[in-house]
Design a protein around this nucleic acid. Structure first.
Ligand SMILES: [Zn+2]
Length: 615
DNA sequence: CGCGTTTGACCGGCGC
DNA sequence: GCGCCGGTCAAACGCG
């Protein structure tokens, strides 16, 4: 089944990107035309009114209005009509104006998105770091000139426009990883590297684009699921469809690394973390070295959805549920699912970014931007960054030698926080199995050990092993966190005020200074990850389904994309206030990282159930 | 009857 | 080449 579907997949890329947006605009256009028509009609009426004295008069004469009195009354009547018509016209005009404005707004948004995308692509390929503005300008121009090309890529998704898009773009193809070249060198060197790498990236991106584009393709209409599904996804690189993947292989035969994985460790009493997705169990195995069976799940959101996850209890600590996600969804997700999905993809991006990082090393430099698989984060000085200290040496043994894996460790182990062994709270670990690049980094949110996690001027530093200044997307988390707090209901970007670096920095400091921040952050992540509504619910709005999750990453993405260069900072700034406050209020205490089973369904069959859970 | 889980078989990768 | 192992498939089964 899948195989067949997969085969059908490799088709030419169709320009789908822009259409959606255009459709939108078209619709607006249509609307406006209609308005205009109305106006015209009104005008006609008006004219008629003007002429009434003559023509209508005549007609009236012909009919029955022979008397002057009647004539006068008729005239008055008509005048009234005229006035009303005018008034109507005025209204229509206003409406028209409004429509125009909205259209403009849409177009702006669209442009912004475009720019973002271009920025991503452009950076990957051209690596223009010198001047973002220039880049943006270029992008703009490019956009306008070769809409076609761009259109392919940049589009706006319906409800989760930016995020979805980005997610898709960032998408799988862990192949990116390849990039990790040297560590941090001179920026120039980095740039050069970036160039080659960038090409690589672009290539891959294009690949994924094929799939992505289509999905994205029908942005506003999720009803087009069928289409998407068809477009499906470049199936699983790894095993499932060995034979299937024709195109991909062709394009990037080298593409050695398998899909990036995101491993989430969390204390979860329930069988499975409820991430909002629908999963179907397709296998279970007893992994070597772990008494607990490992369950394999597949996303059923779409028949062709490549996303899979493995759920396994930690051998050491049964209370810890290790969920490993692989792939990205090729279908619209419920908000709750989005959270996890975007988290996953973002984390994956992060992982990948680790490689990209080297090229992007400039991050340390002011306006550099991190381009992760499509996630484009602008790192301004003003913007908070996550940095991991060099000493983040604790490596999570590469349990997954075959896949690049990033581990998000949300297990809270208050008592053992100082121990360097098993469980750190909110540890973020990326693991690059490839012997070549033993990329292993950790972001430790949990332990308050300052030596491990250092906040510098509101910047959390994340460094790859042996590579001092590389910045990864760890900041995503941070941003997400922040933006989650924000919880901007409409994905539209209304925050476009220019950011005030100082303010931001200050705010950042304030936030970071807050001891609760770390726990809050972890909590936020936790909430994102699972628990659907229940735990996360605190102050969050809920979706109809009752799961009120919202993806931090998505949010972040959205705003980030929206506000070009500084946008991030802006949105960030906007949220800061709320952030700190919300932080404490919304987030459960560090210790209580318990995942509440919100969805009975998900509880269905995870290994844990049988083992230590009786729910 | 449809859907999801269970479970043994099967397959490919990898190390010896 | 062989065996181990992770991962997947798919028939059988159970449930609503
Ligand atoms: Zn899915």
């Amino acid at each position: 089944m899948e195989a067949a579907a997969a085969f059908g997949r490799p088709r030419p890329v169709v320009k789908t990107e822009k259409p959606p947006v255009r459709d939108v605009s078209h619709d607006d256009d249509r609307d406006s035309p209609s308005k205009q028509q109305q106006q015209q009609q009104h005008l006609l009426v008006k004219r008629a009114g003007n002429n009434h004295a003559k023509q209508e008069h005549d007609t009236e004469d012909k009919t029955s209005c022979s008397s002057d009195k009647k004539d006068l009354s008729c005239i008055k009547l008509q005048e009234d009509q005229l006035e009303s018509a005018r008034a109507e016209m005025g209204e229509v005009r206003e409406e028209n104006q409004r429509l125009k404005q909205s259209l403009n707004q849409i177009m702006k948004d669209y442009e912004a998105l475009k720019m973002q995308f271009l920025g991503i692509v452009g950076r990957d390929s051209k690596k223009l770091q010198d001047d973002d503005n220039d880049v943006n300008k270029e992008q703009q121009q490019q956009q306008q000139h070769d809409d076609d090309q761009i259109e392919l890529v940049s589009l706006s998704l319906g409800r989760f426009p930016v995020s979805e898009k980005i997610k898709k773009v960032a998408d799988e193809k862990s192949s990116m990883n390849i990039i990790i070249g040297g560590g941090d060198q001179d920026e120039e060197a980095a740039c050069k590297e970036a160039l080659s790498l960038g090409l690589n990236c672009k290539f891959e991106r294009e690949e994924s684009m094929v799939a992505v584009v289509k999905e994205v393709d029908s942005p506003n209409s999720f009803d087009h699921e069928a289409t998407k599904e068809e477009a499906g996804e470049t199936n699983w690189p790894s095993k499932g469809g060995k034979t299937m993947r024709s195109v991909e292989d062709d394009v990037t035969p080298q593409n050695p690394p398998k899909r990036a994985r995101v491993c989430v460790r969390a204390r979860c009493e329930t069988a499975t973390m409820n991430d909002g997705c629908q999963w179907r169990k397709y296998g279970q195995k007893i992994a070597k070295g772990n008494p607990c069976p490992r369950a394999y799940y597949r996303c059923t959101g779409s028949p062709t959805c490549p996303v899979r996850k493995q759920v396994q209890r930690c051998a050491d600590d049964m209370s810890i549920l290790i969920t490993t996600y692989e792939g990205n969804h090729n279908h619209p997700l419920p908000a709750s699912a989005n959270a996890m999905a975007s988290t996953t993809s973002a984390a994956a991006s992060m992982l990948l970014s680790g490689s990209t990082t080297s090229a992007t090393t400039a991050a340390s430099s002011s306006t550099a931007s991190n381009t992760l698989h499509g996630l484009n984060f602008y790192a301004n000085n003003s913007k908070p960054n996550f940095y991991l200290p060099n000493n983040s040496s604790s490596i999570i043994s590469s349990t997954s030698p075959t896949h690049p894996t990033i581990t998000l460790d949300l297990t809270s182990n208050p008592s053992s926080s100082s121990s360097n062994s098993s469980t750190h709270f909110g540890k973020f670990t990326s693991n690059f199995p490839n012997s070549r690049y033993p990329f292993t980094g950790q972001l430790d949110f949990g332990s308050s050990r300052n030596n491990v996690l250092s906040w510098n001027n509101g910047l959390l530093s994340y460094n790859r092993n042996n590579h001092p200044t590389t910045t990864t997307t760890a900041n995503n988390i941070y941003q997400n966190y922040i933006q989650q707090q924000q919880r901007n209901p409409t994905t539209s970007l209304q925050h476009q005020q220019p950011p005030l670096p100082d303010t931001i920095a200050a705010a950042t400091k304030a936030i970071t200074a807050d001891p609760s921040f770390q726990s809050a952050l972890a909590a936020a992540l936790t909430s994102i990850i699972g628990t659907g509504g229940a735990s996360a619910s605190a102050g969050l709005t809920k979706s109809s389904s009752g799961r009120g999750e919202q993806s931090l990453f998505q949010l972040m993405t959205t705003t980030a994309t929206t506000n070009k260069g500084n946008g991030c900072g802006t949105s960030f700034l906007n949220n800061i206030t709320t952030t700190t406050t919300t932080t404490t209020s919304n987030s459960p205490p560090t210790g209580n990282m318990v995942f509440v089973p919100t969805n009975s369904k998900s509880a269905s069959a995870s290994p844990g159930d049988h083992i230590d859970l009786t729910h």
